[in-house]
Computed example of a mutant assay.
Amino acid sequence: MSLINTTIKPFKSTAYHNGKFVPVTNEDLAGKWSVFVFYPADFTFVCPTELGDLADHYEEFKKMGVEIYSVSTDTHFTHKAWHDTSDTIAKIQYPMLADPTLQISRNFEVLIEEEGLALRGTFVVNPAGEIKVMEVHDNGIGRDAKELLRKVQAAQYVASHPGEVCPAKWTPGAETLTPSLDLVGKI
């Protein structure tokens, strides 16, 4: 069963954020757009390229009212150590959630049980706590923050324009579609 349109399950975590350890729960997401970006582990290879790319686009997400949460099964202490030793990770200003109990990774169905690591999963969550976008990659395939930004823009547009849908490669300002019997077979 797909997680699309389901409500996220309750969770508790400690995040490393802006030089501090802070608690984060599912209740903190209420009323806001959120993006969860799961990755296998700190101190790895593809992960810093993705998290650095997100850091480079973080202000764009913030302007749209979106909070980014990176999540791995590492501890918050490991996140701090990585942040303190990597120039790429030092750019991160969004919360880095720790999931050593594997609860969050299981909730989002990205946990590789036999390894205790998460797949590369990306989830866009609306202010009601419903998952509107999900994408899961093999761990050897990196993601693109610009494409994620576009998907969030589309999700926000559809949420604020009932009855309209965004076609492939839609970007803000481009034409949308209004599904109807008149469109059947004409696209």
Score class of each variant (00 low, 15 high):
Met1Phe: 11
Met1Cys: 01
Met1Gln: 10
Ser2Tyr: 09
Ser2Asp: 11
Ile4Lys: 14
Asn5Val: 02
Lys9Pro: 04
Phe11Gly: 02
Phe11Cys: 08
Lys12Leu: 10
Ser13Cys: 03
Ala15Pro: 09
His17Trp: 15
Asn18Tyr: 01
Lys20Glu: 14
Pro23Trp: 07
Pro23Met: 06
Val24Arg: 04
Val24Phe: 07
Val24Ile: 15
Thr25Ser: 15
Thr25Asp: 05
Asn26Ala: 12
Asp28Pro: 08
Gly31Asn: 13
Gly31Leu: 13
Lys32Phe: 08
Trp33Phe: 11
Ser34Lys: 10
Val35Leu: 14
Val35Cys: 12
Phe38Leu: 01
Tyr39Ile: 00
Asp42Ala: 13
Thr44Ser: 14
Phe45Val: 06
Phe45Asn: 05
Val46Phe: 04
Cys47Met: 04
Thr49Lys: 10
Leu51Gly: 06
Leu54Met: 11
Ala55Met: 03
Glu59Gln: 09
Glu59Val: 07
Met64Arg: 15
Val66Phe: 07
Ile68Ala: 07
Ile68Ser: 08
Ser70Trp: 04
Val71Asp: 05
Thr73His: 06
Thr75Cys: 14
Thr75Lys: 15
His76Ala: 14
His76Tyr: 15
His76Val: 09
Phe77Arg: 12
Phe77Ile: 13
Ala81Gly: 12
Trp82Ser: 02
Asp84Thr: 02
Thr85Lys: 08
Ser86Phe: 03
Ile89Tyr: 06
Ala90Cys: 12
Ile92Ala: 12
Gln93Ser: 09
Tyr94His: 12
Met96Pro: 08
Leu97Gly: 03
Leu97Ala: 09
Asp99Ile: 07
Thr101Asn: 05
Gln103Val: 05
Ile104Phe: 01
Ser105Ala: 14
Arg106Thr: 11
Asn107Arg: 01
Val110Asp: 07
Leu111Met: 10
Ile112Met: 14
Glu113Thr: 10
Leu117Cys: 04
Ala118Asp: 01
Gly121Leu: 05
Phe123Leu: 01
Phe123Gly: 00
Val125His: 00
Val125Pro: 02
Ala128Asp: 15
Ile131Gln: 06
Ile131Leu: 02
Ile131Glu: 03
Val133Asp: 11
Met134Gln: 15
Met134Asn: 04
Glu135Tyr: 13
Glu135Cys: 12
Glu135Phe: 15
His137Lys: 10
Asp138Phe: 06
Asp144Trp: 05
Ala145Pro: 00
Val152Lys: 00
Val152Asp: 06
Gln156Ala: 06
Gln156Glu: 14
Val158Gly: 10
Ala159Met: 12
Ser160His: 09
Glu164Leu: 05
Cys166Trp: 01
Cys166Gly: 06
Cys166Ala: 14
Cys166Asp: 05
Pro167Asn: 12
Ala168Val: 12
Lys169Thr: 06
Trp170Phe: 04
Trp170Gln: 12
Pro172Leu: 05
Gly173Lys: 04
Leu177Glu: 04
Thr178Lys: 15
Pro179Asp: 01
Pro179Ala: 02
Ser180Glu: 02
Leu183Phe: 03
Val184Trp: 08
Lys186Ser: 10
Ile187Phe: 13
